[in-house]
Amino acid sequence: MPKSFSSLASWSLAAAAAAALLVGCSSEAKLAKDEVANSVAEKLAAQTGQPKPDVTCPEDLAGKVGTSLRCKLTATDGTSFGVTVKVTSVEGSTIHYDIKVDETAS
């Protein structure tokens, strides 16, 4: 039987997840908030082997190294966790970022 998606062990594994996405053409790389949320949810589901959680982000992610965005993850049991998305590098229109899920529920 799979562990609860909100299990701390699952989140610990997911905290190391990283993503790189291609973004639309513009002078400054930017990733739409819905694309960030979807990518974070997919990466966490893949890391934990659990269903894709509901993730929402308040704004687009600017493609500038060091930029952080705080998103909200709601697990299938209704538990909420904060998620930090931090840009680690930008190559042209590709934004690379790390994902870190808070260790405790919000």
Rank of each mutant, 00 (worst) to 15 (best):
S6I: 03
C57G: 11
Q47Y: 06
S106Q: 13
V55P: 03
L8S: 11
T104G: 07
L22Y: 14
R70V: 09
T67F: 09
F81R: 07
V83T: 06
V36C: 12
E42R: 15
A45E: 10
L22D: 03
S39K: 07
D60Y: 00
T104Y: 13
V40E: 11
T79A: 04
S93A: 04
A75N: 00
S27G: 07
G92E: 00
T79E: 01
E28V: 07
V23T: 13
A62R: 15
A105F: 08
S12E: 15
H96S: 11
V55A: 05
V55Q: 03
A37E: 00
S39M: 02
V23R: 04
T104H: 15
G78T: 15
K72C: 08
K43C: 06
S106W: 14
H96D: 15
S12V: 10
T48V: 04
S12R: 14
C57Q: 09
S80G: 12
A32H: 07
T48H: 04
V90E: 09
D102R: 02
G78F: 12
S80F: 03
S106F: 09
A16E: 13
P58Y: 04
Q47I: 06
V23N: 11
A17K: 02
D98K: 10
G82A: 11
N38Q: 10
V23I: 09
E103F: 09
A75D: 03
K43D: 11
G78V: 13
A29K: 01
A16G: 12
V65L: 06
T79N: 02
E59C: 10
G92I: 01
T48M: 02
N38H: 06
L13C: 08
C71D: 01
P58A: 05
F81M: 07
A29R: 00
L21H: 05
K43Q: 13
S68F: 11
Y97N: 09
V65Y: 09
T56S: 13
W11F: 15
A29W: 02
L13H: 15
C71H: 11
T94P: 02
C57F: 12
T84K: 14
H96C: 05
A17V: 02
T88K: 08
V40N: 14
Q50R: 01
G66Q: 02
V36Q: 08
P53R: 05
K52S: 06
V36I: 06
N38P: 05
D54W: 14
A75I: 00
S6D: 15
S12D: 14
A105G: 07
A62N: 12
Q47T: 15
I95M: 04
V23E: 04
T74P: 04
E42T: 14
G92L: 03
A45G: 12
L8W: 10
L61P: 11
D102C: 03
T76Q: 09
L44I: 15
V87S: 07
A32Q: 08
T84N: 09
K86S: 13
D102Y: 00
L44W: 14
D54E: 08
L21V: 06
K100T: 15
K33Y: 09
A14L: 10
S80A: 10
E59Q: 15
N38A: 12
G63D: 04
Q50H: 05
D54P: 04
K86V: 12
K64H: 10
A15L: 00
S80L: 03
D102T: 03
A20M: 09
K86N: 11
E91F: 07
D102A: 10
K52R: 03
V36Y: 02
T88G: 11
S80D: 06
A105H: 06
A17L: 02
L69K: 13
T84S: 13
G66D: 02
